[in-house]
Amino acid sequence: MNAYRLYISWLTLTRKEVMRVLRIWTQTLLPPAITMGIYFVVFGSFLGGQIKEIEGYPYIQFILPGLVMMTCITNSFSNVASSFFSAKFMRHIEEMLVSPMPDWVMVTGFVAGGVVRGVICGLIVALVGLFFTHIPIYNFLIIAFYLLASASLFSLAGLLNALMARKFDDISIVPTFVLTPLTYFAGTFYSIQMLPETWKKISLANPIFYMVDGFRYGFLGVHDASLMVGVVLLGGLNLVGLALSMHMVKKGVGLRS
């Protein structure tokens, strides 16, 4: 396929994935708005007043970037995981497999769908947050980098999960046993400076911590850990995830017998 055909092929898949997100918006876009609205009410308004400022910011402003990030990555993950797995389950993934669409177009097309869902959900949470607090912006480029790179990383993770999954239950294993614990221990609700040494060290081994920390830096201009580590980690994991999913699709893992 020439470049123009590749572009059409990629655009067709991406547009289809985005249309899916918008069409089933009550399952894809509404839930984070409601959940995070509740978080803001409980942690921001009810409890927030009782909690003293963290690093000079009111509690609700401190947790907002983390909530946006948390929403973005869980939605990116579940978008690709469920869309790709149902394509496998209903077999219409075969539409793509029989076509000359190269593997990388398929992978990046699904990932693009996940990124779009993650970013839209993140924006929705930020918009809901605006009802409760003012959102400072320290550096927009940093915000954009962290949001997009995290969304794409977890879209890739969703794809890998869906490739290996044999039944619908398999795509909820990672969110339940990996994503949820890691996001809650990623310093969304506290600064790791407040933790005892041991827990501080453990937190530094959590990749999502660097995403939340760097993302928050884009808003507030303060961070707990090395930003360099965060950028390298995100970039590196994205490359690993991409290489791994390309390899698996090429070999046909979970796709071809």
Partner: peptide, 21 residues
């Protein structure tokens, strides 16, 4: 091997898209 929720039009039209048409 259909996405049974997709319309007939999209089913055929998207397939053309995958081929780069």
């Amino acid at each position: 091997n259909f996405n049974i929720f997709e319309s007939c039009w999209n089913t055929v039209n998207f397939q053309a898209g995958y081929y780069g048409i």
